[in-house]
């Protein structure tokens, strides 16, 4: 059960990146700091270290109300 939901979430996230990249004005959006942070955060998924959710939340924290 976990597998199907994780698989779905991963594909949906990948499709969202594709959607953004295919959109008009994608070059500017691709350099948006928030998107960069999301791409960086995705790296925690490949780690063997626990507390991935906490580390992703921490990596997305502390850049002000627009971050």
């Amino acid at each position: 059960m976990f597998y199907l939901h994780m698989r779905s979430a991963l594909i949906e996230t990948a499709a969202t990146f594709d959607r953004i990249q295919a959109a008009e004005g994608a070059d500017a959006v691709w350099r948006d700091r928030r998107l960069e942070k999301l791409r960086e955060a995705a790296g925690f998924l490949q780690s063997d270290e626990p507390q991935r959710a906490r580390r992703i939340l921490e990596s997305l924290s502390g850049e002000g109300p627009d971050a």
Binding site: I11, E12, A15
Partner: peptide, 14 residues
């Protein structure tokens, strides 16, 4: 969960 979301379907059409 196991097939397409509405968003992915419209992505494909586009």
């Amino acid at each position: 969960v196991t097939k397409n979301s509405p968003q992915r379907v419209i992505d494909a059409i586009e």
